[in-house]
């Protein structure tokens, strides 16, 4: 897949998924359902009758021109934006539209922002510690002590994202690419079923991109991933099913080659 310098790494991420699978009931093999979802801002239809499904363990790329509704779609899934109509289910049982942001995180959906967002005044290790799955009430955090198992888990994730050397540095001092990895590591600490990754390759060098491709590829299977990306080389390298969004709805879906040869896609996006 990539010829870039490969990074030594232990076995593929294999942590237990904290969330109770039965709670979400994945028996149908589909993790995320978005059906007939619409949302408009001041009359502008950001999402317009969107249907979007993600399977368990799938890696999916979402592409589309600016304003196609990619980020809004993530806002809806994570509870930041409420749609005007439509359904949004996580597994068979969890209605995402009835949950707030924190509940959605605890149900197993992690999100990486477009602009890498880490806790800059905290050390890399602390960033992961704060992101760890577990009780997150005021009282629980006041009383929290790091257990040896938790420490081990953090070190494991540090290894996966290749930041073991940087564990004691302030996150604000990391390079742009390292911040992107740290943020992915923070998602992993939550043991999510679904990772929403918004533009992971933005501002990365080619080497960093290769490593990111490898990282995301290794996470698929254990987790489902939805990756929004502009960089076509990056999307091709991920070698996954691709969904093309345009004007808030799905224009085409398939492998990168299929999508690229679709005349409608060429017209609105790739041909430009």
């Amino acid at each position: 897949m990539t010829d870039g310098p490969s990074h030594a790494r232990g076995p593929v991420f294999d942590a237990e998924v904290a969330t109770d699978l039965e709670q979400s009931d994945l028996s149908h093999g589909t993790l995320l359902y978005m059906e007939d979802v619409s949302v408009s801002f001041d009359g502008f239809k950001a999402i317009d009758g969107l249907n979007f499904y993600v399977n368990v363990g799938e890696l999916r790329c979402v592409i589309g021109p600016n304003g196609a509704g990619k980020t809004t779609m993530m806002d809806i899934i994570t509870g930041k934006t409420r749609p005007d109509k439509g359904n949004c289910w996580f597994g068979q049982r969890l209605d995402l539209l009835a949950m707030d942001e924190a509940e959605i995180v605890h149900a197993g959906i992690g999100r990486k922002f477009q602009k890498p967002t880490v806790f800059e005044q905290h050390r890399v290790f602390e960033n992961l510690e704060l992101s760890m799955a577990g009780p997150k009430s005021v009282w629980a955090t006041l009383m929290a002590r790091l257990t040896p198992e938790q420490k081990e888990r953090i070190e494991e994730v540090l290894d996966i994202i290749g930041l073991t050397q940087e564990a004691a540095r302030l996150a604000g001092a990391l390079s742009h690419g390292q911040k992107q990895w740290l943020e992915i590591g923070m998602l992993l600490m939550q043991n999510p079923l679904l990772l929403l990754v918004d533009e992971p390759a933005a501002g990365m060098t080619h080497q960093e991109m290769d490593r990111t491709v490898e990282l995301l590829g290794s996470l698929a299977g254990e987790h489902s991933l939805v990756v929004v990306e502009h960089d076509m080389d990056f999307v091709r390298a991920l070698d996954s099913r691709v969904t093309v969004l345009h004007q808030g709805r799905v224009l085409a879906e398939g492998s990168m080659d299929e999508v690229q040869s679709d005349p409608r896609v060429v017209e609105v996006y790739l041909g430009e």
Partner: peptide, 10 residues
């Protein structure tokens, strides 16, 4: 430092 990140961390 990052209110949204904290919220989406649960």
């Amino acid at each position: 430092d990052a209110e949204d990140r904290t919220r989406f961390t649960g």
